[in-house]
């Protein structure tokens, strides 16, 4: 029995097809302006690669911003629940999930059984989200992936006055003009992001094990800085790409539903 999950985010859209608790195929694409277009495209791509057809999918759960507008899903579940569920599948011992998405970041606490106990998301602007890093990387003329690697090479990270996207952007430009080594600026950007995230994570109370999901989990600079801020070790996700955690969670909910459970 095949099930699928689709997670339409502000920057990227993800689809996962699962069978018997295993991932058959997963795809990540850049999101389009309209959520339903992203959903169609990413799902069709995943199906094609898996050699399946829509009717082969017993159940599909949608999540993310545009989830209510996706026509082909059977059920919509909030991305907070999906990220919690997905993280649990990726790291079974996890109790605290920190997810940094394109436009928001969240911290989720799970109980011993993996049920969501508490969550918090950022209220405000792009500070502390993937968009923040994207903007900064662009200013520095770097690929988003390079930003993380840079931190490791930094000897003297720059301290940024603000984690506000607008202010920090001005500061980054200033530092570039002052010919500060780019790795020190990159490390500073990652630090600023981590400090913002640490406030959020601390406010729900951390419990071990902690893991990170979302695209930013692939940025080691941020993950290392966050470990320092929180004073704990963050378990690295190796089983799958942490960016698809939400889609995995959605697929797991679909599996539950298909097996007769209530979400």
């Amino acid at each position: 029995m095949f099930v699928s999950g689709v997670d339409v985010g502000s920057l990227t859209s993800k689809a996962v097809i699962m069978k018997d608790d295993r991932i058959v195929k997963s795809v990540i694409i850049k999101s389009k302006a309209r959520p339903w277009e992203s959903a169609d495209e990413v799902m069709d791509m995943a199906l094609a690669r898996a050699g399946l057809d829509r009717k082969d999918i017993k159940n599909c759960v949608g999540t993310g911003y545009g989830r209510d507008k996706i026509s082909f899903i059977d059920e919509a579940v909030s991305e907070i629940a999906c990220h919690g569920r997905g993280a649990r599948w990726l790291v079974p011992s996890v109790r605290t999930v920190i997810d940094i998405g394109g436009q928001d970041c969240k911290a989720i606490r799970l109980d011993a059984k993996g049920d969501m106990m508490k969550f918090i998301t950022n209220d405000k602007c792009a500070s502390g989200t993937g968009r923040f890093l994207e903007v900064m990387a662009k200013v520095m003329n770097l690929d988003l992936d390079e930003l993380g690697e840079m931190s490791a090479r930094s000897k003297q990270p720059v301290t940024f006055a603000s984690a506000c996207t607008v202010w920090a952007q001005a500061d980054v430009i200033q530092q570039l003009n002052d010919k500060v080594p780019i790795e020190d600026i990159a490390a500073g950007v990652n630090n600023a992001m981590a400090s913002r995230m640490a406030i959020l994570a601390n406010s729900i109370g951390l419990e071990n094990d902690v893991c990170m999901t979302g695209g930013v989990a692939k940025n080691n600079g941020v993950v290392n800085a966050l470990e320092k801020h929180l004073g704990i070790r963050i378990k690295r996700i190796r089983r799958e790409d942490p960016q698809i955690a939400g889609a995995i969670g959605a697929a797991l909910f679909a599996m539950e539903k298909a097996s007769g459970g209530v979400i």
Partner: peptide
């Protein structure tokens, strides 16, 4: 907890996502 702006309802998507998750909880 939820912080919002007073005025035209523009952030309903974000708000709804969180309330939905809260209801799921």
């Amino acid at each position: 907890r939820l912080e919002r702006e007073y005025g035209p309802l523009v952030e309903t998507g974000r708000m709804k996502m969180r309330v939905d998750a809260f209801i799921e909880r």
